[in-house]
Measured scan of single mutants.
Amino acid sequence: NMTTNERRVIVPADPTLWSTDHVRQWLEWAVKEYGLPDVNILLFQNIDGKELCKMTKDDFQRLTPSYNADILLSHLHYLRE
C-alpha cells in the first residue's frame, strides 16, 4: 500500500507521446520531487506532450515562475535525451 509520495509516475518514455493526463501526472510528480512552489497545474490542463515539447522557456514562464520553468524544462530535456 503505497503513499502518494512513493507512487511511481508511469508515462511513456517519449514525452512527445504524452496525453494531457500524462502531462498532469508529470507535473504533480515534479512539484513533489523538486518542491516547486506556485505551480498551477490547471494552467497546463490542455497541453499534451507534443505541445509541451514545443514550449519555449518564455512559454513556460507565462504559466509558472521562472525558477519552476527552469527545473521543468531541464527535466523535460533530460527525458528527451
Rank of each mutant, 00 (worst) to 15 (best):
Y67D: 15
N1I: 12
E81P: 07
T64H: 03
N46H: 09
E33S: 10
W26Q: 01
L17F: 04
V39K: 04
L17A: 10
D58K: 09
N68H: 08
L79S: 06
K32F: 05
T16A: 12
D48K: 07
S74E: 11
L73H: 09
V9K: 15
E81F: 03
R80E: 06
K54L: 07
V11S: 15
K50Y: 07
P12T: 03
V39N: 06
V9W: 13
Y34Q: 04
D70Y: 04
Q45H: 14
L36W: 04
E33P: 00
V11R: 15
M2P: 12
E6F: 12
V23A: 01
W29Q: 15
P15D: 00
I10C: 10
H75I: 05
Y78H: 07
H22G: 05
T3V: 08
T20D: 05
A30N: 05
A30D: 00
R62L: 06
N1G: 06
T20R: 09
E81L: 14
E51W: 04
S74Y: 11
L36F: 10
V23L: 01
R80G: 06
L72W: 02
V39R: 04
M2E: 05
W29V: 06
E33T: 06
T3N: 10
V39H: 05
T64E: 05
L17H: 13
Y67T: 15
W26N: 01
S66I: 05
S74V: 06
E51C: 07
F44D: 09
N68P: 12
N68M: 06
F60R: 01
H22K: 04
N46K: 07
L27S: 00
L76Q: 00
N5F: 14
T56D: 11
K32D: 10
G49K: 00
I10E: 15
L42D: 09
T3M: 13
W18Q: 02
N5H: 08
W18G: 00
K57W: 07
I10F: 09
E51G: 12
D38P: 13
T20L: 05
C53Y: 02
A30K: 07
N46W: 05
D48M: 03
L72Q: 01
E51M: 09
K57C: 04
T20A: 12
L43G: 11
Y34F: 11
Y34W: 07
D70K: 08
S19H: 05
H77N: 15
K32V: 10
L63W: 05
A30G: 05
L63D: 01
K57E: 11
D48T: 13
F60S: 02
K54N: 09
L17K: 14
L17D: 14
T20M: 05
Y34P: 02
L42Y: 11
Q25V: 12
Q25F: 08
R8D: 15
R7G: 11
L79H: 08
D70Q: 10
Y34D: 03
A69R: 01
P65T: 12
S19I: 01
P15L: 03
E6L: 12
D59A: 14
E6W: 13
A69F: 04
V9P: 15
T56G: 13
N1H: 04
R62H: 06
N46R: 07
Q45I: 04
L52G: 01
P37Y: 11
Y67R: 11
W26H: 00
C53V: 10
A69E: 01
V11D: 12
L42F: 06
I71K: 14
E28F: 04
L52M: 03
D14N: 08
N46D: 12
V23C: 03
D59W: 01
I71H: 12
K32Y: 05
D14K: 01
M2K: 06
C53M: 13
W18F: 00
I41S: 06
A30W: 03
E81A: 10
H77K: 13
I10R: 14
F44Q: 05
L42Q: 12
S19C: 04
N40L: 05
Y34A: 05
H22Y: 01
T3F: 11
F44W: 08
K50R: 10
I47Y: 11
N1C: 09
R62E: 08
H22E: 12
K32P: 02
W26C: 00
Q25P: 00
D38S: 09
T3E: 09
G35H: 14
L79I: 14
L17P: 00
Y34T: 03
W26R: 01
I41P: 10
L76N: 01
T16N: 09
N5T: 08
L72V: 02
T56P: 02
S66E: 13
V11H: 15
R7Q: 12
L79Q: 11
W29R: 11
E6G: 13
L73R: 10
N46G: 10
L72K: 00
T3C: 08
Q25W: 07
K32T: 10
S74C: 07
L42R: 14
D59N: 04
N1Q: 11
E33R: 11
T4K: 10
R7Y: 07
P37S: 14
E28Q: 09
Y78G: 15
D38E: 08
